[in-house]
Design a protein around this nucleic acid. Sequence first.
DNA 1: GCTTGACCCTATAGCGGCTAGAACCTTCAT
DNA 2: ATGAAGGTTCTAGCCGCTATAGGGTCAAGC
Lengths: 132, 132
Amino acid sequence: MDARITIGQLAKATDTKAVTIRYYESAGLLSPVTRTQGGYRLYTDRERDRLIFIKRARHLGLSLEDVKSLLGLADDENAPCRQVDSIIHEQLERVRSRLKDLQQLERELDRLEQCCQADTVADCKIIESLSR
Amino acid sequence: MDARITIGQLAKATDTKAVTIRYYESAGLLSPVTRTQGGYRLYTDRERDRLIFIKRARHLGLSLEDVKSLLGLADDENAPCRQVDSIIHEQLERVRSRLKDLQQLERELDRLEQCCQADTVADCKIIESLSR
DNA sequence: GCTTGACCCTATAGCGGCTAGAACCTTCAT
DNA sequence: ATGAAGGTTCTAGCCGCTATAGGGTCAAGC
């Protein structure tokens, strides 16, 4: 336990790119425990778990800012769960709103696609529809 | 007819910001017919219509690159409609794929939201789920 | 003709979340 | 001692705008 791994090993272990890990560091999400004399970043299981947490949260579509908040809350056992809830809830609302937009878009594109049987742009209903 | 309007008037007429119009110009989508001696851009109805076309296409979620292609096709009466179709079709596919992802996401977020009734982060199922 | 104020100009930097590249340094096995 | 593999920092690019700074132009009213 407490084994130290380099950024490349951490990257492989979590299926992340090393550049992305460095980027998360610059964004204040994940720091190496220490460095070698030559400046190589070193990580432990703790950071690996943290990175997995980050990836799962990102997979939910959360912004890095939200992920940062979640990490802060996760670090404090006494933090009110309500704040976690509200981050998730707001994301759910964003996703639902985006879904509505996309469904509307799908209908429009589908209608457009259906309506054109022409050969040339001169008779193209799609172009016509965009030009009105 | 053939009245010349400034960028601000075009912006108001099409509900676009002047900076955005300039940006479209820099992207090769829309140029003023001419300029005043002092360098002010001047537009006619033709550019207004073109900008409306751009806005409609953007509203369909098309990239500026795609919009540019559509404009090129629209300018050529003899261009094959097939190319227009395929731009629309590919966009529809992208939208459908994104819809699938988002629906999956909605389910995950919904599940997460349901499962947490705790007071503090120590018992929070959401955090637990992210940490596993 | 002159001033005022609304409008316009260019150039540059920033957003988010990475990704790519250059130019260099470290580590480790042989 | 050497060479390959992997690490370092820094800078710039992607998309589609948006914001800011620091200036110039235009039309109207006096």
